[in-house]
């Protein structure tokens, strides 16, 4: 039964990916993201402060970050399948990513980091907010899914890690790019952290009327699911823009899938609809040599 489910997810994401890649080729939209920041960090201090204040809420599944917990049911399977496809691994095992090193940039309280480690990967999870890293470490001590020694947290930035010449098989950055000051530079950093021939997976929110009504109007203003001001719609990134930024950083799109909120199931699931949340995998050119 699971095999069928797994394959379903795989083909669904592949199908969605192909469809979206085609759409991207046909598109000429390149809005750009304005002036580039000259500093070495793409971190926005105001954003960091915003998350630091709410650090103790990361693991409250009924609270502010509840949607991120439910998002795991879409983004973790996507990453599992994308990584297994890319590295020729058997996704049907309980921990298929055991041979891979993964970095998660902007891990927050570690909601996705623990899932990645639970799928077997050796995960380094980083965040610029010390408070979040503290919470993540605290939760890791008592969690029930991560095998010993497969997950470590560091309070640092992607740029700092890249400058230490750390390189990984898979680079993951989920729901982060819409919060950074300089997305093109952020994409270059992610590309830098990736080994040649490696994989970069990013998820974010599209900039559409739908995402405005769902993420800003419904989630923040009406339902109070997310705190007011958690998102700035103007900073949202369309799949086209993300692809172009990544291409400029030397990353080629391999798959895109939408992540749609399913009301009856009360969780996110992979879908063809990329108009609100979506996740994309990019591969970095080059031979897979011996790495880190």
């Amino acid at each position: 039964m699971l095999l069928a489910r797994g394959c379903g997810i795989a083909t669904a994401s592949r199908r969605a990916g192909m469809w979206c890649a085609r759409r991207l080729l046909a598109s000429e939209a390149n809005k750009g993201t304005g002036a580039t920041m000259s500093g070495s960090s793409s971190v926005d201090p105001r954003e960091i402060e915003k998350f630091a204040k709410r650090a103790n809420e990361w693991w409250d599944t009924g609270g502010t970050y509840g949607p991120l917990h439910r998002l795991n049911y879409a983004r973790s399977p996507f990453i599992r399948m994308a990584a297994c496809d890319h590295y020729g691994l058997n996704a049907e095992q309980r921990r298929p990513l055991e041979s891979l090193s993964v970095v998660e940039v902007g891990c927050g309280g570690g909601i996705l980091s623990e899932s990645l480690a639970a799928m077997g990967a050796k995960v380094t999870a980083i965040d610029a907010a010390e408070e979040s890293i503290e919470v993540a470490r605290e939760h890791l001590k008592r969690n029930k899914v991560v095998p010993d020694g497969r997950l470590s947290y560091v309070a640092t930035t992607g740029e700092a890690l890249a400058s230490e010449n750390r390189r990984f098989d898979v680079v993951v950055s989920s729901e982060v790019v819409e919060h950074v000051v300089d997305p093109p530079s952020f994409c270059r950093t992610l590309a830098e952290l990736c080994k040649p021939g490696g994989l970069v997976v990013m998820s974010t929110i599209n900039r559409t009327v739908w995402s405005y009504s769902l993420a800003i109007v419904a989630a923040e203003r009406i339902l109070g699911m997310a705190p007011r001001g958690a998102h700035d719609w103007n900073q949202f990134v369309t799949p086209d823009e993300l692809t172009i930024m990544c291409e400029d950083a030397g990353l080629g799109l391999t798959a895109v899938s939408g992540m749609r909120w399913s009301l009856p199931k009360n969780q996110f699931e992979l879908s063809r609809d990329t108009s609100v949340n979506y996740i994309a995998a990019f591969s970095k050119a080059g031979d897979r040599g011996a790495g880190e």
Partner: peptide, 14 residues
């Protein structure tokens, strides 16, 4: 199975 597939805690209320 779905929880294990997604790297989630299968014993969590979620």
């Amino acid at each position: 199975q779905e929880a294990l597939w997604s790297g989630q805690d299968f014993s969590a209320n979620l």
